[in-house]
Design a protein around this nucleic acid. Structure first.
Length: 650
DNA sequence: GGGAGAGACGTTTTT
DNA sequence: CGTCTCTCCC
């Protein structure tokens, strides 16, 4: 798909897209609705810069999610313009990660950008006991509050944190992270920001001449301020859409795009409002839906005049099973009749239970479907030795790759104990901090009897086992290493084995295996070019396009799910859910199916958080999602899915 | 370090 | 209603 040699950046480009690509105004803001070609316009701008001779490595193109980043990379490659492959493109976090890993930065910050896996975070929280920090749940909340404060830059106000217990917690938290030579993901951006601020002469502050930011509404305050700093001596262009802001749980600051002109004097504005992707009917419904969000900047998405009306169905089923069977049958027929390709079908589910049902129903009908929920390859309880097999094997692999990895050492020593041996580990840590010895060296001396610390018997036992297993695996490589750590035929190992099977070559070492697995586990791929039906959450669909989109579970409590302790929080949560639904329905090019069930087993309804009305003892009647009504008069009437399938219309 | 019983809580999403 | 978490006890 790359352009021929004669390609020029403005070929076939007109209107706002052309102005976005050709303008050199800075700062610049592009407000663009779903499917309006904003990534396309940004990439044409990169093409222009390159064709005008800009240094590719001084152009930064970044976004928040990896799906979007991958999309950007793909578009860049398709430009076929010289130098495109040298343009710096990726997520903001990957930029921070590489900056913080540079030798001179490591030296200045004293922090090592070794991120904690969620399993490892459990050990951190277990170690932060006492001092009135509360139970594990309370400590999780406390940690989350720190994440929020970092994201919102509240951490920069003098005297922060205010609460005396939080002050101690913060000190203990940072102390733990420093000792274990690790970092929380939430620290990546604030640490980078702090480094750049503290080092005004650093070359990294003036490295970029052009900074292009996509999905700006998904960034939090700290990320937005970091970008200002990175672009301080260059051109900054941000693109986004406040109506597609769906990441408040990670403290996204969607007001940032609406108030960008206020915080960035002299902002030049451009807008893209013609939805090239969606059918006209869907555009109309999306517009009506989103006007229910008060306080948004009023804007109307325009349909592309040549686009079809589209097919929209609102279907109701009597049970989750009926829904799964029925939707699977509809999808199967459409595929069989060659109306749609499997890879162009997206099924979006607000709860994974619903997603799994439909995935299984599709597979049972011979339609290959794959689900993409946040699946933990490292599931299990670290307190039960038998349940934490995958975690332990991965920890062992980490130590094989780097025997000095302090977090992995900490975890290895704690597995299988109710307290994760936090008391014993604290004694060891105290010794290390007093003597300057590394935990590994101290454990080696403890194991050989050279050193003795009270109440560390279990720790030493675990460490001896580690030494034995590391010795066994020392020279094992490739497939044999995978087999030794993650044996075939074991259920707990199967997901990891699948990941390992994608590694190229067969002589890879522990480092390579660990890195591939780490990425596979923490950053699962969301493929765009596939030949099977994809089943996923509404969030994950952002940035994707399909010919047939099914949204399951359109009932109150699921869509929308409202949370919050105060009424203001619940209102904000409802508005975000509306944006999430807006994102979901604007994924389609042709067909949209909105599906719901009229009753649920009480237990399931309760587990999923569905709002229930009357019913009988075992089954409760559900309430149709308010968003269905908010789609306005052009929305077709709800019909019985079963009748539709039997009448073979859909 | 493991087991019994009481009490809390329930979802989704990212780096 | 079932699962997780915490406390208490041995």
């Amino acid at each position: 798909m790359s352009h021929g040699a004669g390609f020029k950046w403005d070929d076939g480009l007109q209107g706002a897209a052309r102005r976005i690509a050709e303008s050199n105004h800075t700062p610049m803001r592009v407000v663009a609705g779903p499917g309006t070609g904003k990534t396309f316009a940004l990439m044409r701008r990169v093409a222009r810069l390159l064709q005008e001779g800009a240094a590719p490595n001084r152009i930064l193109v970044c976004t928040f999610t990896r799906t979007a980043a991958k999309d950007l990379e793909g578009e860049l490659a398709r430009l076929g313009v010289g130098g495109a492959e040298e343009v710096r493109a990726g997520t903001l976090h990957s930029y921070c990660f590489s900056l913080l890993g540079r030798a001179e930065v490591l030296e200045a910050t004293g922090r090592i950008p070794r991120p904690l896996l969620s399993v490892e975070e459990r050990f951190l929280l277990e170690d932060l006991n006492g001092n009135g920090f509360g139970r594990i749940r309370a400590r999780e909340d406390r940690l989350q509050a720190f994440n929020a404060a970092w994201a919102r830059l509240q951490s920069e106000t003098p005297g922060w944190p205010h609460d005396p217990i939080d002050q101690v917690f913060h000190r203990e938290l940072v102390g733990w992270l420093r000792f274990h030579e690790a970092m929380l993901i939430a620290e990546l951006v604030p640490e980078t920001l702090r480094y750049l601020r503290d080092n005004p002469a650093s070359p990294h502050r003036s490295v970029f001449e052009h900074v292009l930011v996509d999905e700006y509404q998904d960034l939090n305050k700290a990320e937005q301020v970091l970008l200002d700093l990175v672009a301080e001596r260059g051109h900054l262009i941000v693109a986004g859409d406040e109506d597609q802001s769906i990441y408040s749980f990670k403290f996204a600051h969607p007001e940032g795009i609406a108030s960008f002109d206020g915080s960035h004097p002299g902002t030049h504005d451009e807008g893209l409002d013609e939805c090239r992707r969606c059918p006209r009917g869907v555009v109309e419904m999306a517009n009506t839906l989103i006007t229910n969000n008060p306080g948004r900047t009023p804007r109307v998405l325009k349909p592309l005049p040549g686009n079809p009306d589209g097919e929209v169905f609102v279907l109701q089923w009597r049970s989750v099973e009926d829904e799964a069977q029925g939707i699977a049958e509809i999808v199967r027929r459409r595929i069989q009749d060659r109306e749609v390709e499997p890879g162009r079908v997206l099924v979006l589910a607000p709860r994974r239970h619903l997603g799994y049902q439909i995935r299984d129903a599709l597979n049972a009908l011979g339609v290959y479907a794959h689900s993409f929920f946040h699946e933990e390859a490292l599931e299990g309880d670290p307190k039960c030795l038998g349940e934490s097999n995958a975690q332990q094997a991965f920890t062992l692999l980490t130590l094989l790759a780097n025997p000095d990895d302090r977090v992995a050492l900490r975890c290895w020593c704690g597995f299988g104990s109710d307290s994760l041996r936090s008391g014993a580990w604290a004694r060891l840590r105290e010794h290390c901090e007093g003597s300057g010895e590394t935990p590994r060296a101290a454990l080696e001396r403890l194991a050989s009897g050279d050193l003795s610390i009270a109440h560390t018997g279990q720790l030493i036992k675990r460490f001896r086992e580690l030494q034995r297993r590391l010795a066994e695996l020392e020279s094992v490589r490739g497939g044999a290493l995978v087999d030794a750590l993650f044996p075939g035929g074991q259920e707990w190992a199967s997901l990891i084995r699948t990941l390992a099977s994608t590694i190229e070559g067969d002589e890879f070492d522990a480092q390579k295996l660990r890195e591939a697995l780490r990425i596979g586990i923490t950053q699962p791929e969301l493929p765009t070019d596939v030949d099977y039906v994809r089943v996923m959450s509404l969030h994950k669909s952002k940035g994707l396009t399909a010919d047939l989109v099914v949204v399951l579970g359109c009932i109150e409590g699921l869509i929308p799910t409202t949370v919050g302790d105060t009424s203001a929080e619940r209102v904000a949560s409802l508005e975000e859910q509306r944006r999430l639904f807006y994102v979901a329905i604007t994924r389609t090019r042709r067909v949209l199916i909105l599906s719901s069930v009229t009753q649920l087993p009480r237990r399931l309804a309760h587990r999923m958080g569905a709002q229930v009305g009357s019913g009988n003892w075992t089954h409760a009647v559900t309430v149709a999602s308010r968003f269905l009504a908010e789609l306005g008069p052009s929305r077709p009437k709800a019909v019985s899915g079963t009748t539709l399938v039997q009448g073979q219309q859909a």
